[in-house]
Design a binder for these strands. Structure first.
Lengths: 221, 221
DNA sequence: GGTAGGCAACGAACGGCGTTCGTGTCAAAC
DNA sequence: GTTTGACACGAACGCCGTTCGTTGCCTACC
């Protein structure tokens, strides 16, 4: 039973494994084939190895996804143009976009105190802008909490529309039909305001304005 | 080879299967042993049957969880005391509590236009309160969107603290240490505002006030 | 009373999954 | 030349969600 050593030159230049390579491959798989396809086995196969090999660089699937999230947040570009409100708008919008571009990643950010390098960069910038707006320390701190929560939630919502098989329009019209068939005596407001509920308009921008205005009018404590 | 009919009296009073029984059992399992234990097999075993039997009443696991969410939202009590702002506060708080009491259920609400009977009841009440506050139809509609998103997000966050093994205190102090070790040149604001970031206080109530104040100061379009 | 039809119940299986364990392998350190 | 230690990985464990085909019971009709 000869153990013929297979020449490694047969498949040359195989890139060495590394945390970064794994994380980037994970994002590739996620973007190409969706959240269900993001399995340890699939990522390993993409790197031409077995799933066990990944665990040297990654604690588990959750750890991988957290790393992927921070990698995605690295795409957020910080700018210094416009009023602090405009900059805060732009920053938050960019963060939502960066997260929602990859299905399921935003959900990782929810209920986690951010600790990734890039997430903290975004947080730091948010704090700077809020201080620039004249808020006291405590209010700024609570505000960044709220803004981050909203960002993650908005991205999660966006994300499901972007991917989950059906597009936004299908989902919305399905809900519209459901609301139209509701008994008016049990759901009077939904019935009478149904048109407004599904009216078009830039709700994301409006939401952010609500948060900013609210923060300015609501001192902590 | 005798097919001896096993007397069903040996295990009597086996409750017949039903969607409701499955949903309630699901909540039981979830509350008792957490999200990881909430499997079709486990719920089936709890009902003394096999997993295949569940699929008569439930399309799949997601469908089950959606039903469980709405069942949980049935616990929200609607009240008619106090100003509309106070009522909105109470309603939202109750919804957050109802959802966050069951690990992972709040996440189901995120990125889903609510269609469950009980969810719609909460939405309808929210709309009524907002109209009572004098908002026009469009602003009220957008506001209920935002409030629902915030409610689901807050519940998701709460939920992970309530369960996920470690309690809130552990998680927070871990983050505090991480922030304390951050390089001040790269993260100047986080470093200098660290104390405020982890300061105690009722952030949930404050957040809701931010939303309400913001909504009042930000007409839609 | 007998029988046909329909449907809830379910046993078994399929094709996955995350993660662990033990064994190779190879390059650097001594 | 030998030792050492980290990386790589094949194989396996114990799960998972879901489907298929059969069974057995209950009902409605003759």
């Amino acid at each position: 039973m000869s153990t013929q050593p297979i020449s490694r030159r047969a498949r040359p230049a195989k890139a060495p494994l590394s945390r970064d390579a794994i994380v980037r491959t994970g994002l590739d798989v996620l973007d190409r084939d969706g959240l269900d396809a993001l399995t340890m086995r699939r990522v390993a196969k993409e790197l031409d190895t077995g799933p066990a090999s990944l665990y040297v660089y990654v604690a588990n699937r959750d750890d991988l996804m957290a790393a992927m999230l921070d990698e995605a947040l690295g795409q957020v570009r910080l700018t210094w143009e416009g009023t602090w409100q405009e900059q805060l708008q732009a920053l938050t919008t960019a963060a939502v976009e960066a997260m929602s571009r990859h299905e399921g990643l935003a959900a990782v950010a929810l209920g986690t105190i951010p600790t990734g390098d890039n997430a903290l960069l975004v947080l730091d910038r948010m704090l700077a802008l809020l201080k620039q707006g004249g808020l006291d320390d405590t209010t700024a701190a609570w505000a960044v909490d709220l803004l981050w929560l909203h960002t993650a939630a908005a991205a999660t919502e966006q994300s499901t529309y972007n991917t989950k098989g059906a597009d936004e329009e299908t989902t919305v019209t399905a809900a519209d039909r459901r609301y139209a068939a509701l008994p008016a005596d049990r759901y009077p407001m939904i019935t009478s305001l149904r048109q407004a509920l599904f009216s078009p308009g830039d709700r994301d921008t409006w939401s952010l304005n609500v948060l900013i205005n609210g923060i300015l009018h609501t001192p902590a404590r």
